[in-house]
Nucleic acid binder design. Structure first.
Lengths: 204, 204
DNA sequence: TTCTAAAATTGAGTCAATTCTGTTTTTATG
DNA sequence: CATAAAAACAGAATTGACTCAATTTTAGAA
């Protein structure tokens, strides 16, 4: 009762994702034809659509893995933040940003973001919203931690601040992936400059 | 020498936009087939593609009109802002948000935003980035005005603050259009709550 | 008015995502 | 170990955005 069907299913999922990831990387999202992904994964076109509702969902599965890694890496910072509000935010955001292009190219990010706003109710659209929320929650957790440590004023509206910080960072990241020539250090510097206003306001 | 060719051109542009706007409204963006737009505008498919590079650019032309109206409406607030930082921001943002669904449905906004991140170098992608920048500049202008009026501390980094306010608002707006059931008053209240943190920090 | 080059229009054809329907494989049951 | 129902698979057919070569229209010179 080991479930032959379940095993085959997991295997096919993996093969499809691996084939798609390789082809997205080589040929870009648009350039990676479903037919080619199917061939490389050794399944038929129909099977791909049995596993994923549409091409975007395949990319979605890859993006989710990436963001979950980022969330994991962020936990360390929340547990043990630098003893300075500006550095704490910068460190967490640094992890997000630096990790972001590990597996995903800017083009893949653009596609993923586009799909998530175009089809917010598709499986990936909902997953993406969930990931954004998780990132927001992590920033909120960091702020709560800093408040507990006495580094941020207790009367600050932590949840709203967390959302503000996330929204600004996310928008900056969107603009960043839209411009191929934009560089990570400049992105980080720009976000730091914006956060400086907040840091000055909320520090004890 | 009134330019027959130029007149016909303008007329066809108008007919295409009107047909598209009507069909987008009736059938949604995806539901509005190019063939149907062409038929309603009484031109051929090829002609549409002579005027616009792709379907997204047609939507882009409509979005641009809408945002330009919003920018115009915003000028009054910048010229004559309420004598209170929180109200000033809220009034300007209120204009943006309240106008936003006049001509464009949430679905159209979703498509427009998706296209602008998917194809940042297409005519519409670049135009959309320009519109975002114009909105950012208007918020910056308001902040500069408030600084000149002595309502905002002079030592505040105005440009960075303007970008922060815009980015947060824009991200909130994106989430707003992604959820059909989200309501404008709640959106405005959430943004006000976030801005309250800033207002407290920057007021004289 | 007539003619020619440039500009614009046309719609049949191409391409790739997605759907659909018949077939095969797996599972569970007697 | 048959066997029927359920699940998964395959790939041909459909669909709709976009292209392109042929045709038509316009501008303006002779």
């Amino acid at each position: 009762m080991s479930g032959l069907r379940a095993r085959q299913k997991a295997d096919r999922h993996r093969r499809i994702i691996e084939a798609a990831a390789a082809l997205f990387r080589e040929a870009g999202y648009e350039g990676a034809k479903i037919e080619a992904i199917a061939a490389q994964a050794e399944v038929s076109i129909g099977t791909i659509y049995n596993y994923y509702q549409n091409k975007g969902d395949i990319l979605g599965a890859i993006v989710s893995m990436e963001v979950n890694e980022v969330l994991n890496a962020g936990r360390g910072v929340v547990a043990n933040p630098p003893a300075n509000v500006g550095d704490a935010l910068d460190t967490l955001i640094g992890i997000y940003v630096e990790h972001s292009l590990h597996y995903l190219s800017k083009e893949m990010w653009r596609q993923a973001m586009a799909i998530s706003t175009q089809l917010p109710d598709s499986p990936f659209g909902q997953a993406y919203t969930g990931l954004d929320r998780a990132l927001t929650e992590q920033i909120r957790a960091l702020i709560a931690r800093l408040q507990a440590l006495g580094l941020v004023r207790r009367d600050i509206d932590g949840p709203a601040l967390g959302e503000l910080v996330f929204n600004n960072m996310n928008m900056m990241f969107i603009e960043f992936v839209k411009r191929d020539e934009a560089k990570i250090p400049e992105l980080r510097a720009a976000i730091r400059r914006q956060n400086r206003i907040l840091v000055a306001a909320i520090g004890v």
